[in-house]
């Protein structure tokens, strides 16, 4: 379970998040919604360690941890970026196996086998040797999900997973997220799409802009 306690984040004295607290039980899906500029993405960036917080605690499975300094390979928080940020110079397979080999010190054969399982699971079979520029938007997103899953994350986070896709791909994304839920993956999804949030989430957190 992930718990946030009194998380506060400021940029140049402007408070973005003020003493925010919530819990995400294992295997559940939290959707973070709210208008643009409310701090949804900032909250996600704090959880994933891309921003440091100005106050409050993160607690994962009963232990305090600092996402920004977290190097524990049992406490990986995976991220699927809005624009995916695949590595353009690497094939789909290499995008997926790079971090397990370098960071988790898996050997090439194990990393490749695990990657292949995930690639097949997300219907990317046959795309292993393609480069990102040869993929459609939906395929790129699935590669980004596979790449994050290959690190065996405790939690998988998505920043606006529907915004860069055609509207008819929304259901595919929903299905992927719900399939991962059935495998007990804890997921946090930032979205401005209320209907999408209602379709997938166990819990919806509304983030509002802070006045003054």
């Amino acid at each position: 379970m992930l718990e946030l306690k009194d998380i506060t984040k400021r940029f140049d004295n402007r408070t973005i998040l003020n003493k925010m607290s919530f819990q995400v039980p294992d295997g559940e899906i939290l959707a973070i919604v709210g208008p643009s500029g409310a701090g949804k993405t900032t909250l996600l960036r704090c959880i994933t360690g891309l921003e440091t917080v100005d106050g409050g605690d993160f607690i994962l499975d009963g232990e305090k941890f600092n996402p920004a300094a977290n190097r524990d390979n049992d406490k990986v928080i995976g991220v699927v970026f809005q624009d995916f940020q695949l590595f353009p110079n690497l094939t789909v397979m290499d995008n997926v196996t790079l971090a397990p080999e370098l960071a988790l010190k898996m050997n090439k054969a194990d990393a490749t086998k695990r990657a292949q399982d995930l690639i097949d699971q997300l219907s990317l079979s046959g795309k292993e040797q393609l480069y990102p520029f040869q993929l459609s938007g939906g395929q790129k997103q699935r590669v980004a999900i596979v790449r994050a899953l290959a690190m065996n994350p405790k939690i998988l986070c998505y920043d606006e997973p529907t915004s860069a896709l055609d509207p008819d791909l929304r259901q595919t994304v929903e299905q992927i997220i719900l399939n991962l839920k059935s495998e007990k993956m804890t997921q946090i999804v930032v979205t401005h799409d209320m209907q999408f949030a209602k379709n997938i989430a166990d819990q919806i957190l509304r983030v509002e802009p802070i006045d003054a």
Binding site: F81, D83, Q85, F87, L102, A103, R147, A148
Partner: peptide, 21 residues
């Protein structure tokens, strides 16, 4: 910058990020 952030959440070190990406 997203390339650096993407490498960072994947736990790559600064040097690995420079060399491989």
């Amino acid at each position: 910058n997203g390339q650096f952030e993407s490498a960072r959440v994947l736990r790559l070190t600064r040097w690995q990020t420079l060399r491989k990406i």
